[in-house]
Design a protein around this nucleic acid. Structure first.
Lengths: 201, 201
DNA sequence: TCAAAACATGCAGTGACTGCAATATTGCGT
DNA sequence: ACGCAATATTGCAGTCACTGCATGTTTTGA
């Protein structure tokens, strides 16, 4: 059970990291479209064919961190006290990721820049976020106290709104040159949604 | 200025429609991945190369209606009285599209079915919706009465939340077998967000 | 030390998509 | 009605992401 990861596992992680590093460098040098998977493979010292046993698509390399982020959110969500309202639980969980983002700002910005300048990467990013929405929605529906048949819709609305808040905050954070710390912006958005959107003049 | 569309324009529309019809049929017969652009071209009686002067990608054929939907929303948004709150204006505008959806239910479901079973179509759909968000956000920021530098973030939050409401409602509409009419579900979601998410138990 | 499982690699192929040059069609002034 | 200019369609050749399969290599656990 609790055995150390073997040589095989370690090599796999190393390789994955090597591919990622090689790819990001090349994307910055020659652009996303200007880089072929062969070039990435060459720089990472692997066979061209091997690239695709580590990443399903070229786009996925840019978004390699999304899976762990989601894990982190779900983990945090599970840690929240049972009495807490779904919205507060979501806020707290996403704030954790927000401060991760703040800490890894420069590394993140590399990926953002590639993402925002390339439609296919951007599209893939949205698809992954939709996956987040599905997951959060089903986790939240366990915390929701509604017996009606529309509980599913409500759960999804909560998850979708939370991610909308997060994305709006991130967008402002990035376009305003990080004037305010991300967690503060995220809090502002969550507060607005908690209070309701009717009062926006 | 107000001249009739010439032969050229009419033929273009006809062809576009022919390609769309051919493609949707084929997608249903052999699946999206199981259909090539050549097959579509063959059935639409055009050269393979010509397909790509009508649609940028194979995915776009499934989502051909998105552009007009957005036009419709923006148009409706412009028609809303100046005194109305941004949120109510968004609600009214999206409700128009919601009843369009309700009316075109069966035609829509064809597209939905293809969209939800194919990751790349789904991803493209999200990208187009992100475009909606951009547009709505900038239109709404004109209606927002906030001088602060965070007005942009607020505008985006409104647009993103409105679309989140719409998507949540649509999802429920589809997965629950259209038990309730879409406009009613959309209203429910908008009401919840107007009132605030803090009160969800 | 050895057999089996897991993995990397090479090869050959498919199909979306592009640029370019040639050809056809339509619009319009005369 | 004619012919020129603008605009579309078409064919061709090419690039590249991605896949299945067969083969060789490394790692593991007994």
């Amino acid at each position: 059970m609790g055995t150390e990861p073997g040589l095989r596992e370690r090599k796999k992680l190393q390789r994955r990291a090597a591919i990622e590093a090689a790819a990001l460098d090349l994307f910055e040098e020659h652009g996303f479209d200007g880089t072929t998977t062969e070039q990435i493979a060459a720089r990472a010292d692997i066979a061209p064919r091997t690239f695709f046993s580590y990443f399903a698509t070229k786009e996925d390399v840019v978004l390699a961190d999304y899976a762990q982020r989601l894990d982190r959110i779900v983990e945090e969500l599970a840690r929240r006290p049972a009495g807490e309202s779904p919205w507060d639980a979501l806020r707290a969980s996403l704030l954790v990721v927000a401060s991760d983002y703040e800490d890894e700002r420069s590394a993140l910005m590399r990926r953002f820049r590639i993402m925002t300048t390339n439609p296919s990467v951007f599209a893939r990013s949205l698809a992954l976020q939709a996956g987040w929405e599905d997951t959060l929605s089903s986790v939240i529906s366990g915390r929701i106290d509604t017996d009606g048949e529309q509980g599913g819709m409500l759960a999804r609305l909560l998850a979708a709104s939370a991610l909308a808040a997060m994305r709006s905050a991130i967008r402002h954070w990035v376009t305003s040159g990080h004037r305010d710390p991300l967690p503060k912006l995220v809090t502002t958005c969550f507060d607005q949604l908690a209070r309701g959107l009717a009062d926006v003049p």
